[in-house]
Design a protein around this nucleic acid. Structure first.
Lengths: 214, 214
DNA sequence: GCGAGTATAATTGTATGCATATATCCATGA
DNA sequence: TCATGGATATATGCATACAATTATACTCGC
């Protein structure tokens, strides 16, 4: 019952993370290992593992009794964008310096796929390719440090944005900005890549600020 | 068996993290839960928890048999400093904008303590106060996001530096730079605080680069 | 009626056992 | 000799049992 499948702990983490960021477990509610274990029908062991990861990401906080749900505030979201502006700028620069031809081709392919989904107006898939594009940048930047630092931040803003979009009904489109970044990286121009990426994340921040009326 | 003290899992994580970053477990070596469990004299449960955290921080990587030690390369360390330059700059700025009088007093006290240890040439304590100073900045910046992002990065450079210092015999002293940062924060001057912090982390990067002969 | 002290319940920390998957090694046959 | 197949060893994933701590409720004495 082990390898091919994703571990229960991973599945449970994904589920709990989603449920917290989308409000299924409201901020302030208390979760205990035992109650989660009963709710999800598994033993405490994989639950513990998932909850520890939630703790590390500050989505929950230990309290005298179980853990209490924290999620993130709009203010936190804005700060995450400020950090992302700087660090993704560095990552894009590193990417322009280090990317291989194969990786570049992969990136181009993803952008074409995104274009396809934009024409079909499949917003779920658009958002997916969007995230994948950023994760590619993190991965192609030449050090796992970029991914480790940026992936959790990106993840949080994505889910926060998702909740805001659901409330407002608006959607966003940043395909052109992605293409600018790609072009700079393809040209192996670090300055241009950094600039394009910083501009892109800044725009994303502004869009969310409007959306969430911060 | 659940004393007031820190949990076994936490202790083991700290120890393994240190041992990896200082080379006790060389890069490429393989660790299994069972062998660690026997070496450290505890059951697999807390070991598992610690190893999962190491995986999340990319200090080890799962393999067919146990996990293999990754640690960080000098190149990674330099990248971490580049990220810290930017993000700690933001944190220092936020700190100057948000810090309370009590927090400011606490910070001043810490710097006086550090001065005391410097006169006594107690390098272990100096390093401790050093780390505490940075962590205070993260905590007083007004959002847990700063701490979550910066603490792991700071931790890694500290331990990496420790290994380098052990090899070279040199030590470093950055008290004056800390004091500059404090003065800017005390004056509630965000621009000056950001600048002082950036300069400080840049200097730390240069010192490590010399030390590690990168 | 109320406070103190104690019993009880609830919760997490740790150990252990079992199931399962994978690697390794050895034997056997062409 | 080499490939193949199976037995064995080793590893992790999950469940469960137990220990210990902390919160809560309750009782008893005043």
């Amino acid at each position: 019952m082990m390898h091919k499948t994703i571990s229960l702990a991973d599945q449970i983490f994904e589920r709990l993370e989603s449920d917290i960021l989308t409000g299924v477990y409201p901020i302030g509610s208390v979760l205990t290992e035992l109650s989660l274990s009963e709710d999800l029908g598994v033993s405490r062991t994989p639950i513990r593992e998932a909850v520890r990861r939630l703790e590390q990401e500050h989505l929950v906080e230990p309290s005298s009794k179980g853990v209490v749900v924290l999620s993130i505030t709009p203010h936190d979201a804005m700060i995450i964008y400020d950090i992302r502006i700087q660090v993704e700028g560095l990552a894009a620069r590193a990417c322009a310096e280090n990317i291989t031809d194969e990786q570049l081709a992969e990136m181009k392919e993803l952008l074409e796929l995104q274009e396809f989904y934009i024409k079909k107006a499949d917003s779920e898939k658009i958002k997916n390719t969007d995230s994948q594009f950023h994760q590619m940048i993190y991965q192609f930047a030449g050090s796992p440090v970029y991914y480790d630092t940026l992936a959790p931040l990106h993840n949080k803003t994505q889910k926060f944005r998702k909740a805001s979009v659901a409330r407002s009904g608006k959607a966003v489109n940043s395909h052109e900005e992605h293409h600018d970044i790609y072009k700079a990286i393809a040209a192996r121009d670090p300055d241009a890549a950094e600039l394009a990426m910083k501009r892109h994340v800044e725009e994303a921040k502004k869009r969310l600020a409007e959306l969430a009326e911060i």
